[in-house]
């Protein structure tokens, strides 16, 4: 895997997502935003500000016309990004640009149809060449990944994360553990993205159950993490958190001063 990484023409020394999480161990902060939102030019700015402000990982959403797993905040950001003219080709060039100065591991999140249309291997190769370390494709079933794409991901050293939810069986959790080369994405409750509620007893016992399974992959908790309290509530269970919709809402409100908005948001976490 790392032999392949050396072929990237970047001068910066990048580590894998898995290494980044494992070397820090806990309190990982993974921030999601949609590429092309609030403006077409914002990707490199937001990446650089997040890195400066102490994010450990960044998840870049590839805006999609039909984001089934996403709530209103991410849907709206996708619509705006598409209207701004964001495409996958543009995203790859934005990432290349960012890579001149930034070494934070980057994860792309998108829907399976986007990969199919781009050409799956071409997508993985070009994402890798641009300086992307991992992918999350929520509607790509684990079985299909294993039988059709795992070899391609391995060839380019591309890491992947699978989602688990409170309704996921132990057997599938084990499968996600085995196949996730980056981290396991623990969806804190059965919902689309963007819900802000305190953790319920039920969720706590779900998180306990997963922790007790003693998984080999690191795990990050996403969905419903929006401030310091919600972050701390789950940090004690796993390696860290993923924050998305709350950040999107902040960017939308504070788009006149993106660097300032990112700093203030990160301080609040």
């Amino acid at each position: 895997m790392h032999a392949v990484n050396k072929s990237i023409p970047h001068t910066l020394n990048m580590s894998s997502i898995r290494q980044t999480i494992e070397s820090k161990g806990s309190n990982i902060l993974n921030i999601y935003f949609t590429a092309g939102h609030p403006t077409l030019e914002s990707v490199p700015v937001i990446i650089s500000e997040l890195e400066k402000a102490g994010a450990d990982l960044i998840e870049l959403g590839m805006p999609y016309s039909d984001p089934l797993a996403d709530g209103p905040a991410i849907q709206r950001s996708s619509e705006i990004a598409l209207r701004n003219g964001q495409t996958i080709a543009i995203l790859f060039s934005q990432v290349k640009e960012s890579r001149k100065t930034s070494s934070i591991p980057l994860i792309l999140m998108g829907y399976y149809n986007q990969l199919i249309q781009y050409g799956e291997e071409k997508f993985v190769k070009e994402a890798h060449d641009a300086g992307i370390q991992g992918l999350i494709i929520p509607d790509l079933p684990m079985e299909v990944y294993e039988s059709r794409y795992k070899d391609i991901f391995d060839k380019y050293g591309m890491e992947i994360s699978f989602l688990i939810t409170p309704m996921t069986s132990d057997e599938r959790i084990r499968q996600a553990d085995r196949l996730s080369s980056a981290f396991i994405y623990v969806v804190s409750k059965s919902s689309v993205t963007g819900k802000q509620e305190d953790l319920s007893e039920e969720q706590l016992s779900y998180l306990d159950r997963i922790r007790a399974m003693d998984l080999k992959s690191p795990a990050l908790v996403g969905f419903g993490i929006f401030d310091r309290n919600s972050r701390q509530a789950v940090n004690r269970f796993f390696n860290g958190v993923i924050v998305g919709s709350a950040f999107i809402r902040a960017l939308e409100a504070g788009q006149d001063d993106l660097p300032g908005t990112v700093r203030v948001f990160m301080e609040g976490l």
């Binding site: 089934l68 797993a69 699978f162 989602l163 309704m167 996921t168 969806v187 059965s190």
Partner: peptide, 12 residues
């Protein structure tokens, strides 16, 4: 055909 769905729908 097939079932290309997010994990949140898998159980149902």
């Amino acid at each position: 055909g097939g079932a290309f769905i997010p994990e949140m729908l898998h159980a149902n």
